[in-house]
Design a protein around this nucleic acid. Structure first.
Lengths: 225, 225
DNA sequence: CTAATAATTAAACATCCATTTGAATATTTG
DNA sequence: CAAATATTCAAATGGATGTTTAATTATTAG
């Protein structure tokens, strides 16, 4: 075995460091956690529940992400709240997702199959939406929990958390198309909302983009109400 | 153990797919291979040599990258030439590197230490360079092998492969500053070039960016001569 | 066809990693 | 201080992964 040169050692160290970033993105549950954190800060418990993982395992994954400096933890009271370590992290996650979508057909296949089962095939075109919202032709629903709506939502969108949608059906206009969105392309809230709306005679479609995508595209995001 | 819902299965499948991308970026040698392929296509043998790995191991890593659809292989003659599966892959690698540099101080530490040992601390500011090249104030040297220069180089740069630099010292102007660049921030060719130039009384500095970075920044790239 | 070169594959090994379980720690509330 | 809750840690397990060595396949040249 030859003695490594000083520049070989340098390169090894550098690429080893880069691979640390890769490693933190190499487990499904961690990516789901990152995706959730793109929506805003969460406690360990909330992340565990939403990602369908045990608390211990979620905590462990969060340590990994923290060591890679992708997330930060802050204790407030009994809870520890985790958040992304910066906007670049969210932008990078979206880039990763975009690359995967463009290169791994499996993703498209899985998504198509899932949407077909649900009968919610077409999604609305993002560019068309912007102008139609302005013209008041469509009603945009944010079907995520209210706190997430507060933290940031598409301008002009109305907060109707999925859990309350059934109750609020009477308030919704029947003469206009309804567009529902949630956390992003792999969040199912909007899909379920569209199902429910259609079952009740509304003309409803889904916007695949979530607020982080909206923001990453340079489009404006409203906070609070 | 609860029965997973259909949307849970969907999410698991999606994030599992995304993690495949992460996994392919989770090994140092693979990232070095990707970095090299950002310069242009290479044979397995060339990659193995430049990355300081055995051919068998390099081939194995290339299979992993190919399964993730990040690289493509083409046989011509005895050789199999690998190349990036698309420009987005290079752009993504640069994004990954940028995120790592912004978040992992270890990278900066390792780099700084290496450069200090070599005595090549300061690197030139990219924006300043563009205008100074235009004004003819500096001579820009591309010190990579000639083939790489041919495949794409910074406009106005002169090809002087590191191996030939010593012989060409007499041709270089002594009254102007010389800026050397190579494959990118972790390539050592430009560092060695600057060392050699300074030892011979030239005023020389290094540009950390390589051609892929140059391109990713939207700056023009010249091919051939 | 044979030899030589290039690349892939298989087997083997050690290492690392995700997950579960149960215990330990930290914080608030009573 | 004690109880309750939230989170982390430690140990154990099973499975995946990187690397090396050696064998195998594929292509070209003679």
């Amino acid at each position: 075995m030859p003695v490594p040169s000083s520049s070989r050692k340098f390169k090894d160290a550098i690429y080893e460091q880069l691979s640390q970033l890769g490693k933190s993105l190499s487990a499904g549950p961690r990516l789901e956690i990152l995706d959730l954190l793109c929506q805003g800060p969460r406690t360990v418990e909330a992340l565990a529940k939403q990602a369908g993982q045990s608390v211990a395992n979620t905590s462990h994954h969060l340590q990994v992400l923290r060591r890679a400096r992708l997330v930060e933890a802050e204790r407030d009271g009994v809870h520890v709240t985790y958040s992304l370590a910066g906007e670049e992290v969210c932008a990078f996650f979206i880039a990763l997702r975009g690359l995967a979508e463009s290169r791994l057909l499996e993703i498209e296949q899985v998504t198509r199959q899932f949407l077909q089962e649900r009968g919610v095939m077409e999604a609305i075109d993002r560019e068309a939406l912007v102008s139609r919202v302005k013209d008041g032709e469509v009603t945009v629903l944010d079907v995520r929990p209210y706190e997430e709506y507060q933290a940031g939502h598409i301008p002009g969108a109305m907060s109707v958390p999925l859990a309350e949608l059934e109750r609020k059906l009477t308030v919704l206009p029947r003469d206009r198309e309804i567009v529902a969105y949630c956390r992003g392309p792999y969040c199912v809230l909007a899909i379920e909302a569209v199902e429910l709306l259609r079952k009740n005679g509304f003309k409803a479609t889904r916007l695949t983009e979530g607020v982080p995508d909206w923001r990453a595209l340079g489009l404006p995001v409203e906070t609070k109400q």
